[in-house]
């Protein structure tokens, strides 16, 4: 594997129900360090499955995934070590409701990186300040709005200092007026050079920060290119049809 790529996916397949459902049907993908990739496509085309495969929340049926040149689908790799390097943000936030915001953020660093509690909290508070939530450090998730929850979910992942961030429709569960505040955080992160894979329907975001847009259909990557290419001159009929609906 070329050292240029932080992620390399080769022939990735994911089948459900003994092959009756082919969620991923042969995906190849190379991601450079610092690249921001937006994945689009109709519902059920396998976007989530691809993202979840990248940190093995789904076990691939076939194919290989290289993360920093290590094959994480190999039986002998310790997946827990590699998951620390890959942050994930979910559509429904998945904050831990029984912990304060601060505890949500410091649990993993304290348990896994053996960081001192005070140090972990200092770092968490710094990150909370960046997203404008330092005064909510001791609140519980249920006391936050959707947009605030998702901002916390993002910085919770950042507390582990990941090399890659995966976003699975991070704004789809939000009220429209809260979408902006979450996208702003993601834009900031992109500008700071984070490698990001983002599944989203926010085409404005894609245009503004994506280095590459990937259009998926029926478990494969049908088309990819710069935002300008994909949005103004889509090559495939299905891409055109999809973009007509969402733009």
């Amino acid at each position: 594997m070329s050292a240029n790529y932080i992620i390399s996916v080769r022939g990735l397949k994911k089948h459900y129900n003994r092959g009756k459902i082919k969620a991923l049907n042969g995906v190849d993908l190379d991601v450079k360090k610092g690249e921001v990739i937006v994945i689009i496509g109709p519902s059920g085309c396998g976007k989530s499955t691809l993202l979840r495969s990248l940190n093995l929340l789904e076990q691939p049926t076939e194919g290989q995934i290289f993360l920093e040149n290590v094959d994480i689908t190999d039986r002998n790799t310790n997946i827990n070590l590699h998951r620390r390097k890959v942050g994930m943000v979910f559509q429904h936030f998945n904050l831990f409701p029984n912990m304060t915001i601060l505890k949500n953020m410091t649990l993993a660093p304290i348990q896994l990186k053996k960081v001192k509690k005070a140090e972990a909290e200092k770092k968490a508070l710094e990150l909370l300040r960046v997203v404008g939530l330092e005064d909510r450090a001791n609140a519980y998730p249920s006391q936050l709005s959707g947009g605030q929850k998702q901002r916390v979910a993002i910085v919770r992942a950042l507390c582990m200092e990941p090399d890659v961030m995966l976003f699975d429709e991070p704004t789809s569960a939000l009220d429209p007026e809260m979408v902006g505040e979450v996208l702003d955080v993601m834009k900031k992160l992109a500008r700071e050079g984070m490698t990001m894979l983002v599944v989203t329907h926010e085409m404005g975001f894609a245009r503004e920060v994506a280095d590459r847009v990937i259009f998926m259909d029926e478990g494969t990557i049908l088309e990819e290119g710069t935002p300008a290419d994909i949005f103004s001159q889509p090559q495939h009929e299905r891409t055109k049809a999809f973009l007509n609906k969402v733009l």
Partner: peptide, 20 residues
């Protein structure tokens, strides 16, 4: 999603069970 959030942070199965 609680399990997935824990695992995606790198916590192993037992840690996710115990803390989350």
């Amino acid at each position: 999603g609680q399990n997935e959030a824990g695992r995606s942070l790198g916590l192993n199965y037992m840690q996710t069970m115990w803390f989350i």
